[in-house]
Write a protein that binds this DNA or RNA. Sequence first.
DNA 1: TAGATTGTTAATCGATTAACAATC
DNA 2: TAGATTGTTAATCGATTAACAATC
Lengths: 221, 221
Amino acid sequence: MIHEISDLTLRRFPKYIYILRSMQRKGQEYTSASELSRFLDIHHTQIRKDLALTGVRGIPKRGHRVDSLLRACIEFLDWDNLTDACLVGVGNMGSALLNYEGFAQSGLQIVAAFDSDPEKIDKRINNIKVYPIEKLKDVIGILEVKIAILTTPAKNSQKLTNEMVAAGIQGIWNFTPKKLVVPENVVVENMDIYPALAALLGKVRNVNTINPNGPVEFDQE
Amino acid sequence: MIHEISDLTLRRFPKYIYILRSMQRKGQEYTSASELSRFLDIHHTQIRKDLALTGVRGIPKRGHRVDSLLRACIEFLDWDNLTDACLVGVGNMGSALLNYEGFAQSGLQIVAAFDSDPEKIDKRINNIKVYPIEKLKDVIGILEVKIAILTTPAKNSQKLTNEMVAAGIQGIWNFTPKKLVVPENVVVENMDIYPALAALLGKVRNVNTINPNGPVEFDQE
DNA sequence: TAGATTGTTAATCGATTAACAATC
DNA sequence: TAGATTGTTAATCGATTAACAATC
């Protein structure tokens, strides 16, 4: 029986990869679950379970070779194969993502962008061509893109989503605050910043409420 | 005994606020936990528990008044009071955030930005002044800012974090992939896009693995 | 060898969901 | 009234953490 890999598990792997890459750059040969745990605030048992999913075996007392462990993690996420994506909505956030350098190392390649502003159409941003939004369906169909990044104003997000789904999109990275309605075989990953903002402000308040004057210092003098 | 409000709870409230605002715009007078549940994919029992935290009481068979419920949710997150923040690193992502229109409605006001590029210093983006990074400590001290948004390259993130903490920052919204080390009274909210990307690509793969040919259609002919 | 580390199984913890009486 | 909705308590579920034998 194949177990579905849980969302939380998938989210931990990029953190392993990030640390392992920096270890590799520094020439470190071996690492252990306990060492990764110290750097990441993830319990060492959790890390062992995750790494076991990739099939690697560690050596007691020594741990894992950094390079083979890194390779295993990258393969586990399939980040050694680039998945094509398109980006819809070339505003501030969209441009920022089009200029991101890290995607190529993370399994993603943006091959087309769409916008409704005639000023932007047919321009290239970071060598990615901006198509008119009317051509959404055609271009997605021709390029056979399965992943879309949605960075439009929230207003049209559902309409565009419907078009994208009709054109064959299977996964949407949603940067708008709107919940998208999609068929069950289409996946949505919400990248809404407001829940994160609420969590940040709320946690700062939690800290201040529980411990309103900060750490108590013993006033010598 | 005061219960600390959990992270997941805090993250749900912006979703309630978002829906309630659009209901209010449409002039809808009443809503119910069950209705919100349909729009949000959150269990109705969960919603009732959350709303109970704000102190509102619903009316059986009728639900809640949209306007008073919205007000209660906003007060619960303290979004009716603006918290000052500064932004460190005016790159693509930083500029996108400086131009965000939604923060004022979400309890956040960015009052200063910092960068090391002389081209950017002393310019204004969306009326927010860009200071030289060397003045980080002074400006944060003078303006008494407690929240920082970190959108620099990952390289210097820990060094800048140390400076910000020394200057009195209590909460950091971290857009870099690096895990920041901070004292326990400082809160970090990670807005790393790679875990989200891994989750999206992984979930699309999950769907295709479990159901490789999409939904089975009964071919009538 | 001694001890650090692995990998697995069991216990704990917290969030989500189910069940149900109360109420307008 | 009948029935939809509320709000609470109990059950379930899954993730995290603890415990521990195996091993180099």
